[in-house]
Amino acid sequence: MDLGTLGAGLGAGITVLGAGLGIGRLAAAALEALARQPEIAGDARTTMIIAAALIEGVALFSCVICMLLVVMK
């Protein structure tokens, strides 16, 4: 195993850390909002999914970069 592959793996791991934290906080906030105002469930769900998709998109960018590091070496 060379250092490049190691770096890519570590990068993917750190990315997952950030994305997991972000989406977790997002879900927690959405749940709190839902518990406080159950009548906005539909709106909150849509907004939550969009926000989660945006966070996930950034995370996937970095995962793709990690993949490129391995593939295009």
Binding site: A53, L54, E56, G57, L60, V64
Partner: peptide, 13 residues
């Protein structure tokens, strides 16, 4: 670009 990568990466991963 984000749309591209998101769908591709989700399906491939």
């Amino acid at each position: 670009f984000a749309l591209t990568i998101r769908l591709f990466a989700n399906m491939t991963a």
